[in-house]
């Protein structure tokens, strides 16, 4: 076995999901090579070279990789694959990995495997379908396995204990004229990022307005938590879509998840039911969220949340 991991980074640092992907690569077994491509990605390459178990880091620095477009990354990954003949190509199941890897797989005439949550053996993988309402175990028949990895399903590999050699990735003309990266705007926040937060406070339609989300931010401040929302709250216009947790939003699995005014629609539960401890605060004792919560409080959130905040 030999695995190529496509690192996601912002040139300065690795994106955390790359560390989870390394864990999946270790489970597959065999040699692990990491490909770091970017405009000035030295620091990211340095960081991943320190991860235990990585045998080689391939670095590709070029303006061609501005914006990490799939159209420029794909020929680089193909050239790398041609030179080294990996049995597995892995990337995190993020917007980055999900955009690029199917394009790579198509060029290799391979059926990609999205968002795996488990590895039974080097050919057998576990993933969810129907938004987590069923678990599919499949055996991949293609010679090369092209896979995206759900970060929350694998522990992050620490970036220490190793000292992998750094080499240049295969040279080539990777500049594309098909697409041009224009700009990126990340939502600015002093809070932890939803997908990697240890604690999350999430609100639903029960909050009644966007202004009322302040109650949740106050609570989140006490817990150093990220704030999320159900699709119902997003659709009602209370908060922007990037806060959405669920089938059509983010999949999270924090240590503590506090669901406030969230009834617990199937599509929301799919995004958070792997959280270690779920707390639900809802005035409706029949709300389905109580069927998955570890601790439930049937109460008016407008009284209970401020009280909870003051007592922490």
């Amino acid at each position: 076995q030999s695995t190529l991991v496509i690192a996601e980074h912002n040139n300065e640092a690795l994106i955390a999901a790359t560390q989870n992907t390394l864990c999946a690569a270790k489970k597959i077994g065999g040699d692990i090579t990491v490909l770091v491509a970017g405009t000035k990605c030295g620091p990211a390459a340095e960081a991943v070279a320190k991860a235990n178990g990585v045998s080689k880091v391939l670095v590709a620095e070029s303006d061609a990789f501005k914006g990490f477009t799939s159209e420029s990354m794909t020929p680089l990954i193909l050239a790398t694959q041609k030179q080294f003949n990996f049995t597995h190509i892995l990337a995190p199941a993020t917007a980055f990995g999900k955009a690029i890897l199917p394009r790579v797989a198509a060029k290799l005439d391979v059926s990609p495997i999205t968002d795996i949550i488990g590895i039974k053996d080097p050919n057998t993988f576990v993933r969810t379908i129907y938004a987590g309402n069923a678990i599919l175990t499949l055996e991949a028949k293609d010679a090369v396995k092209v896979i995206t990895v759900r970060g929350t399903a694998f522990a992050p590999e620490p970036l220490e204990g190793g000292s992998a050699a750094q080499e240049n990735a295969p040279e080539g003309d990777y500049k594309t004229d098909l697409v041009e990266f224009v700009s990126q705007e990340l939502t600015k926040s002093d809070r932890p990022e939803l997908s990697s937060a240890k604690n999350i406070v999430a609100g639903g339609r029960g909050l009644k307005s966007g202004d009322n989300f302040k109650l949740l931010y106050d609570l989140a401040d006490k817990l150093n938590a990220a704030v999320g929302a159900s699709r119902a709250a997003v659709d009602a216009g209370f908060v922007p879509n990037d806060l959405q947790i669920g089938q059509t939003g983010k999949i999270v699995a924090p240590d503590l998840y506090i669901a406030v005014g969230i009834s617990g629609a199937i599509q929301h539960l799919a995004g958070m039911k792997d959280s270690k401890t779920i707390v639900a605060i809802n005035k409706d004792p029949e709300a389905p969220i109580f069927q998955v919560s570890d601790v439930g409080l049937v109460a008016d959130l407008f009284k209970a949340v401020p009280e909870l905040t003051s007592k922490l």
Partner: peptide, 14 residues
């Protein structure tokens, strides 16, 4: 405009 993790991105395509 594309939805990416934690924000939005703008690209131009042919």
């Amino acid at each position: 405009t594309r939805e990416i993790d934690g924000g939005l991105e703008v690209i131009k395509t042919k």
